[in-house]
Design a protein around this nucleic acid. Structure first.
Length: 821
RNA sequence: GCCGGUGUGUCGGAAUUGGCAGACGACCGCGACUCAAAAUCGCGUGCUAUAAUGGCGUGUGGGUUCGAGUCCCACCACCGGCACCA
């Protein structure tokens, strides 16, 4: 008979709920803030959620049993496109759709037995939350960290909205995979570039973060050191400002290249014979998609614009080109070209027959007929007073030289761009700004926040904000002068909402402040944050940025939000991520209905270590279910022995008793360390499985009271160690054996060090490093004695026959290696 | 091209400090129980030769060591990030 999981799970879920055991209060106990990334309320939970939240729940329950004051909250990242699309498609208002989904998903999450403090639930689409998102926006605006600019932005034609750089993956929309185009628009930005260096530097503090995530963020920020320099243009008062990482190659600059969009191009060719050709070339490049343009296999192509710059050090006139391989977005959009020492410039110079001047050589001699750019370090040549020096030391000398000449300076360039946050959609936090003809851009006064989303809008799915269709919303009065004014109709990127929710959890119901700093001080940082690696750049970078901004405003008590980070792997089936289109989805509901939530949890925790991808396996689920049934039967069969013998004295332990006692305490040690130090839930569970197997064997022979007492101890150990993993079953078993308090509120077990001292140990005997025999010896035997015993072994005698023993390595209680030849 | 990660049975994976490779689970095979099946329980299960004792084996090649999945060097494959980035 299988145990009745549905009855058990329902019973305990109700009990836990009515007793609100998982509520967190600030007190003087040591705190632990366990957080998993909150979900988008799509309406259905998937296996990724089950995995993410099960991992977090194990940690929360474990830390609680260890005596920590645990904060384990849950909420909803509930603004976003699917709600709006549902409105367009089915005519349901996004608010209704979202709130109903939240109701459904909350029930599903509760079903999995997650120990959340639901009284702290935050919902980003509700005014009591987004009021503070707007408030933070205004603080950022006042500090100059939120600003508006006109720029060629990423535009997703399918989502009909703009995208941040971080949301464009390989030229495609992160959400819908459509090819992203460019559009000139007036948009709101956050000045994340001001924080580029701190975001980079403070990664040193993130010791508990995976290397992978830190490396991804480092790549994304893309710092490079170099110099900025002005080149004079012949017959013009304008100067060409360039960025280079190779100031050591300045004497080798033989031409200049500008991005076709560079602001000086039009002016430089105006009225010249080159104007027409240059404009034609510009048109051609502009019509290319970003994907084509940035592909490395596209041939380098450019055109001479008929003007010359002056190399400031050689004073030579050098031609100015525009070319497809120079990007307006990076550096200054202008490049000093050094064909001898840069492969792209080399290919370009060959194609257009431009002079190539070597300035760095391997041995001080010029290479005849260069066949490719020489990109290594070396000895300077053709560089006037720098000749003969190493290119390495010349870098700083030349920077100093150009600084002295006041034509340039040392500088650092980042790939990171400012964060574009306006979206032309309805279902997001309204940007709390007003446009007045007289006063310009005016923030909403703080006491009239929140700016509520209007309800009288049309969902057309067309490329402008639906908020424009609400006359009541758009038309307002200027808070400064009182004249008629217009509201901002764009909403914020939903990543703004999720950039500070972890702070709001520390004080979620505060009506007067974004959060109470003393509460935040008690709970922050998040001790353990868990979520998918797909957020390595987007959410995790934005959240770090926001925390630093709030820290600088003296609001946040910490300048980094997450102490330790775990990026859990994906749930795969048949080697691919579960997805509707591939038809390889296993619904959590189905597993919970057929096997119970405990089995679902146990499987996702047991099948792979948390950070790795998990391959779904129906037979593996069955295996976990069988195991839980075995545990149930074991406890059921021995419950009376437990009740009668749990506190009886253990007299003399025989050999088998000692082994079993060792097994019990070694399992406590292993599970504690696996969960606490290594997050190896899979091996923690396998350790408990071994103890269950051993207990089943041990119970076959209970010939005296000591053995019964040992069995009772083992039963108790199994239930307590399993509690964080399978909360329902363990709660049931705990009450079955006569306890009235919850197993989840008792103290975690401590192992008995004495039980781990063995009288006798198995020692491995190797000959020349190969295993040849195993012997049992008393654990206090001396090194010398152990060596003697080993050499007496029959097998050893056989193997060393005719050889002489050169050396014997003895590791007490472990191994003897005999070297013989 | 640069950066990061991963390579172990048929499969998921274990080996935590350089010390018995393959724990635990799945799969498969055999047996017990049963009229029978399911469930359950027990045994076996890296490859290979064998009557037995053996030989080989952690992506490849080398090295250090009494001893290497683990450390060092060189490479290969796969996954992920960045990338005409000046």
């Amino acid at each position: 008979m299988a145990y009745n999981f549905s009855k058990i799970e329902k019973k305990w879920q109700e009990k836990w709920e009515s007793s609100s055991v998982f509520k967190a209060f600030e007190d003087d106990k040591k705190k632990y803030y366990q957080l998993e990334m909150f979900p988008y309320p799509s309406g259905r939970i998937h296996m990724g959620h089950v995995r993410n939240y099960s991992i977090g729940d194990v940690v929360a329950r474990f830390k609680r049993m260890q005596g920590y004051n645990v904060l384990h909250p849950m909420g909803w990242d509930s603004f976003g496109l699917p709600a709006e699309n549902a409105a367009i498609k089915h005519g349901i208002h996004p608010n209704k759709w979202t709130l109903e989904n939240i109701e459904d998903m909350r029930e599903q999450l509760k079903g999995i037995g997650l120990s959340y403090d639901w009284s702290r639930e935050v919902t980003t689409c509700q005014p009591d939350y987004y009021k503070w998102t707007q408030w933070i926006f205004i603080q950022m605006y006042n500090k100059g960290l939120a600003y508006k600019k006109n720029y060629a932005v990423n535009w997703c034609p399918s989502c009909e909205t703009v995208l941040a750089n971080e949301q464009v993956i390989d030229g495609k929309c992160e959400r819908c995979d459509s090819e992203v185009g460019k559009k000139e628009l007036d948009q709101w930005y956050f000045k994340i570039t001001d924080y580029a260096q701190r975001l980079l530097d403070d990664m040193d503090k993130l010791e508990g973060w995976p290397e992978k995530v830190k490396s991804m963020q480092t790549n994304w920020i893309g710092r490079s050191e170099g110099a900025e320099m002005n080149f004079e243009i012949k017959d013009s008062s304008e100067k060409l400002n360039i960025f280079t990482t190779r100031p050591d190659t300045i004497y080798g600059v033989t031409y200049m290249v500008l991005a076709p969009e560079h602001h000086l191009v039009d002016e430089l060719v105006k009225g010249t014979e080159y104007e027409e050709k240059v404009q034609k070339f510009k048109k051609k490049i502009e019509t290319m998609s970003d994907i084509d343009r940035t592909s490395t296999d596209v041939e380098k192509e450019g055109i001479f614009i008929g003007r010359y710059a002056i190399n400031p050090l050689t004073k030579k006139e050098i031609p100015i080109y525009i070319a497809n391989y120079v990007l307006i977005d990076y550096g200054t959009g202008a490049v000093m070209a050094v064909p001898a020492h840069d492969q792209r410039d080399f290919e370009f110079a060959k194609k257009y027959d431009i002079e190539i001047t070597q300035v760095i050589s391997e041995d001080g001699k010029e290479i005849k007929n260069l066949s490719e750019a020489y990109i290594n370090k070396g000895v300077m040549i053709n560089s006037d007073k720098f000749n003969g020096l190493s290119s390495d030391e010349v870098k700083s000398k030349i920077i100093k030289h150009i600084e002295d000449l006041k034509i340039g300076n040392k500088t650092v360039n980042y790939r990171l761009r400012d964060w574009l946050i306006s979206r032309q959609r309805y279902w997001g936090t309204p940007i709390p700004m007003i446009y007045c003809d007289d006063c310009g851009i005016v923030p909403i006064p703080e006491d009239s926040l929140p700016v509520l989303l209007p309800t009288d809008v049309e969902f057309t799915g067309k490329g402008e904000s639906p908020l424009l269709t609400s006359g009541k919303f758009v038309h307002t009065n200027c808070p400064k002068c009182g004249k008629k004014a217009r509201r901002e109709t764009d909403t914020m990127d939903t990543f703004v909402d999720s950039s500070w929710y972890f702070l709001r959890y520390t004080d979620p119901n505060n009506k007067d402040e974004v959060f109470d700093k003393s509460k935040a001080k008690y709970w922050m940082k998040v001790d353990q944050y868990i979520g998918g690696v797909e957020h390595a750049i987007l959410h995790l970078l934005y959240a770090r940025f926001f925390t630093k901004v709030l820290y600088d405003m003296d609001l946040s008590p910490v300048d980094e939000p997450f102490k330790d980070l775990l990026t859990q792997g994906m749930v795969l089936k048949d080697g691919a991520k579960m997805s509707k289109s591939k038809g390889n989805v296993v619904s959590p509901e189905e597993i919970v209905n057929n096997y119970g939530a405990d089995t679902a949890r146990l499987f996702v925790l047991f099948a792979a270590p948390p950070a790795r991808d998990l391959e779904w396996n129906d037979q593996g689920v069955e295996g976990c279910y069988r195991f839980l049934n075995r545990v149930y039967r074991l406890v059921d069969e021995t419950r009376d022995i437990y009740k009668n013998y749990k506190n009886s004295d253990m007299k003399k332990l025989d050999k088998r008793d000692k082994e079993f006692n060792y097994s019990i305490h070694n399992t406590i040690k292993k599970v504690t360390e696996d969960v606490d130090e290594r997050f190896n839930f899979n091996t923690a569970i396998s350790g408990i499985m071994e103890l269950v197997n051993d207990t089943n064997k041990f119970k076959e022979n209970l010939s005296n009271d000591t053995k019964k007492a040992l069995l009772a101890e083992s039963i108790e150990t199994i239930i307590v160690l399993l509690a964080p993993f399978v909360p329902y079953l363990t709660e049931e078993l705990w009450s079955m054996i006569g306890h009235t308090e919850s197993v989840h509120s008792i103290k975690w077990l401590k192992y008995d060090k004495k039980a781990l001292v063995k009288d006798e140990v198995e020692v491995v005997i190797q000959i020349n490093g190969k295993l040849r025999d195993k012997i049992m010896v008393s654990s206090d035997v001396s090194k010398e004695e152990l060596e003697k015993i080993a050499l007496k072994s029959e097998k050893v005698k056989e193997f060393v026959k005719g050889k002489s023993v050169r050396k014997v390595i003895v590791i007490p209680n472990k191994l003897v290696n005999i070297v013989a030849n």
